[in-house]
Structure formats: structure tokens, C-alpha cells
């Protein structure tokens, strides 16, 4: 799985951080998404899909490989 984020689409809701803090973080200044792990291990993949699905800005893309 490859994860990518688009900071311009991010609305800083923080739901990805709440769902998978191992993969996503937020900028201290404005809460915009930071990608910690672009290739998450198998046990986190389902949570990453949830995070992408609930992101209000549709800022998270997931490429299954």
C-alpha cells in the first residue's frame, strides 16, 4: 500500500490522526496533515482506508499494491 496526501485539500479535521497516529500527524502551526509512513505495514492498512474514507477534504489517496 502507498499512501499520499494533498496538503492543499486538507481541512485540518484531524480525523486521520485520531484513526491512525502511526501514519498521520499534523503541523503544529495550522493542523495540516503530515505523512509519517507512506508505506504502512499490513496491520494498519484497514485503519488507513478508514482514514481516507472519512477525510472531509478527500486529501488522502491510497494506492493498493
Amino acid at each position: 500500500m502507498r499512501v499520499s496526501v494533498d496538503p492543499d485539500r486538507c481541512c485540518s479535521s484531524g480525523q486521520c490522526v485520531a484513526a491512525v497516529p502511526e501514519v498521520f500527524d499534523q503541523s503544529e502551526d495550522d493542523g495540516v496533515v503530515l505523512l509519517v509512513q507512506p508505506s504502512p505495514p499490513a496491520e494498519l492498512r484497514s485503519a488507513v482506508r478508514t482514514a481516507a474514507g472519512i477525510c472531509p477534504g478527500r486529501a488522502i489517496s491510497v494506492q493498493e499494491s
Binding site: S12, G14, V17, P21, S27, E28, D30, G31
Partner: peptide, 14 residues
């Protein structure tokens, strides 16, 4: 305007 406030509501800070 929104981004002037989002920093106050990041998960860690809350």
C-alpha cells in the same frame, strides 16, 4: 481565516 484557527484544534493540543 480558517487556517488562523486550525492550529488551536489539532489533536495533540486538544
Amino acid at each position: 481565516f480558517r487556517r488562523m484557527l486550525t492550529g488551536d484544534f489539532i489533536i495533540k493540543r486538544v
